[in-house]
Design a protein around this nucleic acid. Structure first.
Lengths: 327, 327
DNA sequence: CTGAAAGCGCTAACAC
DNA sequence: GTGTTAGCGCTTTCAG
């Protein structure tokens, strides 16, 4: 910057003004500065600038499980889009469901002085403890939680109506006279899974239907496991007449096995997915608007960054039942 | 840091040493410093640190079209994973296929003094001009290009064998006696699309098959458009007996229309996709390893960051033919 | 092994 | 309108 100033025959501060589009600079001087900038290939150091000016690194941090997962990719895309409108960059960090890693990454993000944090908590057993963020939040790094609530921290949170959605879906099955409904889930340690299971039970209890624990299968980690569980359940003496899959990876396996067996069991699935309409099995999907969730959270975050100090709020977004699959 | 030093009764520099795990600090002093750090809730300012120490922001920039697209999400995930092993954060920016925006974002990333750049060029007509990066690269910000070549810049590049893959796939169709092969593509302006089309023509020319321009349809932007084009082509007096879809969004539409009509046309498709095995139509897919591509590029980038000044190289990764779909 | 001083590149606060 | 001075939080350099 000093070089530019020398070359343009002005002071360092004037260069700073020009580079930052500050008002009250003579056009003539500005032009000379711009010329010098071009000649010298000068590029402003954003780090130094935000070091001096206190906050405003024009960067927000997003902490998720893993970027490659389409659900998180959608969240990241939405957050990036909104951030872009404010000339803010997005740093994405993946916790891979590890609370220790999550905490490290969050601390690192704070050390980089991001303007705010968007967090999908790692959902492993016990959940993560986010109390260490309290200090950061008070020091001016707001945090908004997405999809899952924070652990031990009062903060803005945007959730889906997992319980309500599951309840409504299972009510549909019950109304179609299903009583033996198998439920397949990934991990009961994850908040969303617990909520969805609770919703299913709500509907069953309401209907006075028996709740058979043997029909609930936890630990279904991938499509292959789902196929095995479906096969096993269907070979029982009193097989379920309906399946409720609590996430879309499980749904893939369930569909494949039901299709293979030309089963006529009903299928209810949490999470919509691209291609759901092309799947060779009729199913009812509990869909939601991932982008709306991410948008809400990101807007909430920017409101905080802009100085909103009101009481933290929790927003719950609705789900919707949709018919999918080829019939 | 000064506060911590005061509290621990040491100099500022000693705090710096302790915080950075530097050797040659008396354990006793270190302990006092750590205690003070904990009491005061001190957190090192990463920005200030890398401002003074020259480079090493432990951040790399990734420029892609859009994060929400699974292809780019996979690239981002792989890059983030490798970066993590080096305690490096990843800033992701989306160009949305706009070369102007691309350039802005790249400049901004440089202004943030990222240690290196991973770039999937915006593929719009004419391609982008990356010559403005030459200065940055020379100033020590290495760049590696992915999936598409750079415009007017010699740099490390990792590509897929688009042409070879398409050639091999179409050879298969030709060997199965197909002569009227329709080709559907998104935009001829994108490098990968041109290469794929060239590969198809290679195979046709080899076989002495007629090349019918009316069977090549550019501008098929989404699945709905693909459906319309398929419908129209099938209603011609001499309909194609095979379809070659140049990307997976197009493939979705083609599958849907062929399935709907219970057609027996052969389908060849560039890009594998999750759920391809569940698609209700037999198809041959030209698959490739996106993660390998991203891994290769990211490793190349870190080698540059570590000081490799050898001649830029271009790596081309192979594709593979795979049978998919329900038969 | 530890500390004092200088300064990374920039901007806030003020004087001119 | 423009320049000067100080200093953001840290690390480098070099003296002890």
């Amino acid at each position: 910057m000093a070089d530019v100033a020398a070359r343009a025959g002005v002071s360092l501060k004037t260069v700073s003004r020009v580079v930052n589009d500050a008002p009250y600079v003579q056009p003539e001087l500005a032009e000379r500065v711009l010329a010098a900038v071009a000649e010298l290939g000068f590029r402003r150091n954003h780090l130094a600038s935000s070091l001096r000016s206190g906050q405003a690194t024009a960067t927000i941090g997003l902490l998720i499980e893993e970027i490659a997962n389409p659900f998180y990719a959608t969240i990241a895309g939405t957050a990036a889009e909104i951030a872009r409108q404010r000339d803010t960059m997005l740093i994405i960090a993946s916790s891979e469901e590890d609370p220790v890693r999550e905490q490290q990454l969050l601390r690192d993000l704070c050390a980089r002085r991001v303007d705010g944090l968007l967090i999908v908590p790692a959902g492993s057993p016990g959940g993560s403890d986010h109390s260490f963020l309290r200090a950061e939040v008070e020091l001016g790094t707001p945090a908004v939680f997405l999809d899952r609530p924070a652990g031990n921290l009062r903060a803005d949170t945007v959730l889906l109506d997992n319980r309500g959605g599951a309840r409504e879906g299972v009510r549909g099955l019950v109304a179609a006279s299903h009583r033996r409904i198998a439920v397949l889930l990934d991990s009961i340690g994850v908040h969303t899974m617990r909520e969805r299971l609770d919703g299913a039970q709500d509907a069953l209890v309401e209907a006075g239907a028996p709740y058979d624990e043997r029909l609930v299968r936890d630990g279904v980690r991938d499509p292959a496991a789902a196929r095995r569980v479906v096969a096993e359940l269907l070979e029982r003496p009193d097989p379920p007449t309906a399946f409720f899959s609590l996430n879309n990876r499980i749904t893939l396996g369930v569909v494949e096995e039901l299709y293979r067996r030309r089963s006529d069991a009903a299928l209810l699935a949490f999470d919509d997915f691209e291609l759901a309409r092309l799947v060779p099995y009729p199913l009812t999907v509990i869909a939601y608007d991932t982008r709306a969730m991410a948008r809400t959270a990101t807007e909430l975050l920017f409101r905080r960054i802009d100085g909103d100090r009101s009481w933290p709020r929790t927003v719950t977004l609705p789900t919707e039942l949709v018919e999918r699959g080829l019939r």
